[in-house]
């Protein structure tokens, strides 16, 4: 049973954590991709930016969380979400809109977003330095150890407070987004514009509003993902390039333009990563006694080493591009 607990701690919990992060990032990427038709490379840096906004606010009000019993960073996160959403709209107005107005090819917008990535990275590091930081300033991270009943397992299931918050938040955000996209006027306008921008424009949809709302949603979700990730581990300014590939893989696996597909893609990529680096020999250990004498089970049996974790989303991406470019949910091939 200890082996099963190990599996839960190392695969189920950490898989859900990284999947939720990827899913929240991929929703933003897929919305931008389907409405403005370019791959937004600066998305992971928006996550970092949002997390740094939260860190700045937390440094101003470190004690605010004590009143409710939640981390201060979480209480202050909505303010940072608004700040990042407005920043995202500002970035779009300053850097992407002039390019769009010139009718450039989408790939030029991609290059523009690379320029924005570098500027954001440079600014963040100029202001905040290059070291990693903890989001907990006046508090400590709560860690829950769930003892299993009975004699079966001696080790507890370990789960931390930010992981629970992350999971609850991700589910809430997805439900809210679903409600927004299917019930509200603006959400329907967004879907219309993603299906056919010209038709949407002639039927009287204000494309500028739709684009601004898209950036707000993307920025707010990126902030949440970045903050919750750095609550769970630490806040690093050079996070972005490691997040970018899994997020794009998740968006493309789910099918570009499908927010629900992006969630599914996030879970596919997140769990594929965790399962690929998991040492399967641990699960086989209880069966050692059943084998005939002389048979040895290998002590290390993982598909890829932890240092090659980044290859997993890449291979998923390539496989999906080769076999099913529309993604699992029949997205667009732009």
């Amino acid at each position: 049973m200890n082996e099963l607990v190990f599996f839960i701690n190392n695969v189920v919990v950490s898989g859900i954590v990284s999947s939720s992060i990827y899913a929240m990032g991929a929703i933003g990427v897929t919305l931008v991709f389907s409405i403005m038709r370019f791959a937004h490379f600066a998305h992971a840096d928006m996550m970092t930016l949002g997390a740094f906004f939260v860190l700045g606010l937390t440094m101003l009000f470190p004690e605010i969380g004590n009143a409710i019993g939640l981390p201060s960073a979480l209480i202050l996160m909505p303010i940072a979400m608004v700040m990042t959403a407005l920043t995202a709209v500002g970035i779009d107005r300053t850097f992407y809109k002039p390019l769009r107005d010139n009718n450039v090819k989408p790939i030029v917008l991609v290059i523009g977003s690379l320029g924005v990535t570098l500027m954001l990275q440079g600014l963040i590091r100029l202001v905040a330095g290059t070291g990693s930081r903890s989001m907990y300033i006046a508090e400590r991270k709560d860690i829950f150890r769930l003892e299993l009943p009975g004699e079966l397992a001696t080790r507890p299931i370990v789960i931390t407070e930010p992981q629970i918050i992350l999971f609850v938040f991700a589910v809430g955000a997805v439900v809210a987004l679903h409600w927004f996209l299917t019930r509200s006027r603006l959400g329907k306008a967004m879907r219309a514009m993603s299906d056919n921008p010209d038709l949407a424009r002639v039927s009287g949809i204000n494309t500028n509003t739709v684009i601004a709302v898209t950036w707000m949603i993307a920025g707010a979700l990126a902030t949440a993902a970045g903050t919750l990730l750095s609550l769970d581990v630490t806040l690093k300014p050079d996070l972005s390039f490691f997040l970018l590939l899994p997020i794009f893989a998740a968006a493309i696996v789910g099918g570009v333009g499908h927010p629900y597909g992006a969630i599914a893609g996030g879970f596919v990529v997140g769990f594929a990563e965790t399962l690929a680096v998991f040492n399967w020999a641990v699960l086989l250990r209880p069966f050692q006694d059943m084998l005939p004498a002389g048979w040895e089970l290998p002590t290390y049996l993982a598909f890829v080493g932890t240092e090659y974790k980044i290859t997993v989303p890449f291979f998923i991406l390539v496989a999906i591009l080769v076999w099913r470019p529309t993604g699992l949910f029949k997205g667009k091939v732009l």
Partner: peptide
Amino acid sequence: DSRALQARVFVIGLLISLVLRYAP
């Protein structure tokens, strides 16, 4: 010192954005 080194990141990003905007 280490922060000033990061100014290069910003400068290159700014350069890319400016070129795309004003001298595509």
